[in-house]
Amino acid sequence: MNAAEQAVTVQMASKLGAIVHLFRQCNPDLRADLHPWADDPHTRNWVDPDSIDIGFHLPGWSRRWQARSLLLQIRLYCDPDFPQPRAIGLDIVGFSYMSEQWRFSSIGQGVFSGNNLPSEDLQNQLRAISHEILAVLNS
């Protein structure tokens, strides 16, 4: 689900701002997109209501990122015993002009996969940021 649709409280809006700030520590030129999904009936059928989705766009293709755009999907779990959903993990996908280049999931082994992986230092930075994002959302 688009992050902008999840920002229904001041607290959640503040958390989303913190997440964007964490990501921009990797590259200050990243532009956040809180509406990465189109608002049409076909797209709505595929949107996961148990996720918070944020797009990020670089000013051009980046050798370090091996991408031009990113999609961050934060996976949520709605426990019936708690009023607030909990963030349980996240997926990050890097795209070039042609297609998906790489994928990272903090769920499971936390490995990167794909044909053109980001630099090793960026992979480590994204792993660390994923832990910080989960801490921000679950605080």
Rank of each mutant, 00 (worst) to 15 (best):
M1K: 03
N2V: 02
A3E: 04
A3K: 01
Q6L: 05
Q6M: 13
T9F: 01
T9G: 03
Q11R: 11
S14V: 05
L16Y: 04
L16V: 05
G17C: 00
A18H: 11
I19A: 01
H21V: 13
L22V: 06
L22I: 05
R24E: 14
C26T: 09
N27C: 08
D29W: 05
L30H: 02
R31G: 02
A32I: 05
D33H: 15
D33C: 12
L34F: 10
P36H: 11
W37C: 08
H42M: 13
T43K: 08
R44Q: 02
N45I: 08
V47E: 02
V47D: 00
D50I: 00
D50H: 13
I54Y: 05
I54L: 13
I54V: 04
G55D: 07
P59S: 13
S62W: 00
W65H: 07
W65I: 00
W65D: 02
A67T: 12
L71S: 12
Q73C: 15
Q73R: 15
I74Q: 10
R75V: 15
L76Y: 00
L76P: 01
Y77D: 14
Y77A: 15
D81W: 09
F82S: 10
P83R: 09
P85Q: 05
A87R: 07
G89S: 08
G89P: 06
L90G: 03
L90S: 03
D91C: 07
S96F: 03
Y97N: 14
S99Y: 08
E100Q: 10
R103E: 12
F104E: 06
S105R: 07
S105K: 11
I107W: 12
G108C: 04
G110M: 04
G110E: 06
F112K: 06
S113V: 11
S113H: 08
G114N: 06
N116Y: 14
L117N: 01
P118F: 11
S119W: 06
S119F: 00
E120Q: 12
E120S: 10
L122P: 00
N124R: 13
Q125A: 13
L126S: 02
H131M: 09
E132L: 12
L137F: 07
L137N: 07
L137A: 05
L137R: 05
N138D: 04
N138F: 01
S139F: 03
